[in-house]
Design a protein around this nucleic acid. Structure first.
Lengths: 124, 124
DNA sequence: ATAACTGTTATAATATACATATAACAGTTG
DNA sequence: CAACTGTTATATGTATATTATAACAGTTAT
């Protein structure tokens, strides 16, 4: 798994790590029960503090993405696929909501948004 | 104009003020050349420091939304409609980008997003 | 000119979040 | 026991956000 972090990002480092791992899990690049890099190992690779990685892992565990076992390491949690999907749909709806608000308040047409969506969809 | 701020928000107070005023300007609730609440007045109303309001106003001026005149107060800038529109389209594209990323990483179909969009569009 | 509004600037103090380094402690495995 | 794991505590540094205070400066109406 490749994790790339940036000091100059507006996102804190622990947050960048969280997102990279979440993404890897959701995209199935990291599979159920697969071991994650050890806290100490990842810290060394990224040349950051152990505590920063631990914070990321702790929050990922709290959110149900991974499990950590003292002395052994961390692994991808048996995930509730439905729950993950729901979470993501909710996130998407949140963004759509914001888009619609902007459009309505300043007469941006549905057509414009849809075109932009088509374009960005094909782009990735 | 109603501005509501929250201490417990993840957003800093000055940012909340900026967004509230931007929104009011974009939606034409605050019209061109209309006076904004005075820095001191708003600070008193919201029971926050003058400096916090000033920071919000300073950045709004930097971004071209308002003009401030020493001794007189602040007013909504004669807005460059094109520029505002561009900014909003950019913001929308940012959201679409995030949506597409989520979809691609976990096989959520274009159709699902479009349906959600249609629904939320009609809803508002 | 003065009073009562405006914004400006500078300073100091406090709080919080993020990140670091270090060290000691504890579980697992070969 | 050695060499990996994670855990906890402590201290430190830095940046950002926010506050309070005070002195300064422009505008306007009386």
């Amino acid at each position: 798994m490749d994790i790339i972090i940036s000091n100059s990002s507006n996102q804190p480092i622990f947050e960048q790590i969280k997102q990279a791992i979440k993404k890897a899990i959701v995209s199935n690049e990291l599979k159920e029960n697969e071991m994650l890099p050890s806290i100490r190992g990842l810290a060394q690779d990224l040349r950051i503090s152990v505590m920063t990685v631990k914070k990321a892992y702790d929050e990922l565990e709290q959110e149900g993405f991974i499990k950590t076992i003292h002395g052994k390491g961390s692994l991808v949690a048996a995930k509730n696929i439905e729950l993950l999907r729901e979470e993501q749909l909710k996130e998407i709806e949140g963004y759509i909501d914001k888009i619609v608000l902007i459009c309505k308040s300043s007469n941006i047409s549905k057509k414009e948004v849809l075109e932009s969506f088509e374009y960005l969809w094909e782009d990735k």
